[in-house]
Amino acid sequence: MGKIVFAGAMSHVLDPEYYDRACGAVGRQTVEAVMAEIARMGERLSAKKPDALIVVADDHLNAFSFNAVPALCVRIGRDVQRMTQDHAEAFDKVLEHMPERYPLHEDLANAILEQGLEAGFDLALSWEAPVDHAFLSPVNTMHGARPIPPLVPIWVNCFVAPQPTARRCFAFGQHIARVVARSPWNVGIIATGGLSHFPELSLPRVGETDTVFDRKLIHWMERGEHEPLLDLTTAELHKAGEHEFLNWMVLIGAVTPARADVRYFGELRRINMAAVEWSLP
């Protein structure tokens, strides 16, 4: 019987140069601090010798153009390539110097997809979509020079309205847990992004965060009180700059009712940085 052996969530632009430019020395110090915690989380993940690592993250209009924007999408196939961007700027630059291809856990991805459709989750699938910093920055920070386990990338549409609901993301996470339990594999799962940043996706508001909202989310996660999280609305997540918390909702559904331990929380003008790990039975 399979098992989720590790669960963690973390911010996903993990680049000291980016935050040095955006926020000065305090930006560099903050991201280096969260990266150190994420690297330690990676050591604990590796110690569990997972057969696969599910990565729940969002697209930043890199993998999917406007010909289709899936609410929930499972990447299938043998391997996945990193997104390429000529003359990359801002958060796209973090991808430079990362390995270009990553093996996938094809059987687990297929199981999540096929059993999902049987269970009423009308999941999208992709054989070709590349992964951007939302996937690869945490994965590479966690593993450093160690081998990366076969990945199962899963996209949640966090940004292009209308998005899936928090409740639906949680239910999808519960589905993932059921698939893993029926499988023969030990599986790690991470969710990336956040915490509060870019409220209302408004350029003049870049540089604002909602720390009160973050602390409310953390309070519920630490206590394993997941009911209030189910009622989070797209509008309030949008207002608070918590769009990417939808990724975290998938993970929370997969591990509920486990409680979270905050490994790092740091306020920064541009984004509140976080690294959180769940205590699993």
Binding site: L61, H87, E89, A90, F91, L201, S202, L203
Partner: peptide, 8 residues
């Protein structure tokens, strides 16, 4: 936002 922040 992510497009207006990342066009080379």
């Amino acid at each position: 936002l992510h497009l207006v922040m990342s066009i080379p």
